[in-house]
Amino acid sequence: MSLKGKDIVSIRDLSKGEILEILNHAKEMIPVAKGKKKLKLLEGKILASLFFEPSTRTRLSFETAMHRLGGSVIGFADPSITSLRKGENIVDTIRMADAYSDVIVIRHPKEGTARMAAEFAEAPVINAGDGAGRHPTQCLLDLFTILMEKGKLEGMKVVLLGDLKYGRTVHSLAYALALFGAELVFVSPESLRMPKEIVEDCIELGVEPVSTTDLEKAIRDADVLYVTRIQKERFPDPTEYSRVIGSYKVDMNLLKHAKEDLIVMHPLPRIDEISPEVDKTRHAVYFKQAFNGVPVRMSILSKVLGG
C-alpha cells in the first residue's frame, strides 16, 4: 500500500488500512516532532501552504511538521496580500502553487475547494478545512490521540458533545470512529443534532449511535468525551444560548459522574465549554491533542511525498 501522491480531501478518501498506516507512522514521528531526534526525510521538498482563512493550530502544525522533516514552506496566511485580490480565480492560484511546490495544503471558506484544487494540481493536495465541510487531518489527529491514550479504537465508548450539526470535526470523526467499530453517543441541544446522513453512514458501517440531550447520563461509562464549541451565532435567541451553554459545561461537578480514566478532548479553541479547573486533571488531553497535530501531519506529509 502506498499513499505516495495521494490527495487527502476527506477522511473518506482513506481506507481503514491507510488510516492505520498514517497513525502508526505518526507514533514514530513523536520524538522528531518534539525536536529530540533529527530526521531529514523531506529535505529539498517544498510545501505550499495556502490559507484563505485564518488558522492557528492547523497552519502552524503543518508548517512545523514540514520544517521538522527538513522541508521548506511557501505560502500565505492572508489571501488579501495575493493576486486573488486582483480578481484571480482560485484555480489559477492552485496551478501556480502546483508549479512551485511538491505538496499543497489548502484551507478555504468555501466547501469543496480542496476537491477542486486536487483536480487541477498534480502535486498531492491536503485539505486543511473547507468551510463547514471536511477537515481530515483534524480527524486523523483525533483518532491518533484516542489510540495513544487508550491503546485502541475498537469498542471505545465515545461521547461527542456540542454543536453536532455545524461542527465539521465531529462529522468526519463520527464516520471514522464508526469505521473502527467504536460505540457512539451524540449529546447536543435538539436544534444542533447530528445530521441524519451522518447517522445513516454510521449505521451502514454497523454502528448504531445513540442521540441524547442528557450529558450526565451519557458520560457515566464513557471512555472518551469529545467536546466542541457551541457557537453563539447559531442561536437566534440569546437566552436559549445561555440555557444550552450552561447545561453542557464540562466541569469537576460533571466529571464526578465519569470513569476515572475518561479522557476529555477538544479541537480548540475553547471558549467556556470546559472549565479551566479540568485542565489540571488527568482527564484533560486537549493540549496533548493539539501537539499530536504535528506528528500526525509529519506522517501525512512524508507518506504523500513518498518519504
Binding site: 480565480n89 482560485i90 484555480v91 478555504h108 471558506p109 468555501k110 466547501e111 469543496g112 475547494t113 476537491r115 477542486m116 483536480e119 473547507d130 468551510g131 463547514a132
Partner: peptide, 15 residues
Amino acid sequence: RCPNPNCISNSEEPI
C-alpha cells in the same frame, strides 16, 4: 446545481 450556496461549484471558478 448544488443546493449548497457555499459550495465552490457555485462560484466563479472554471468548473
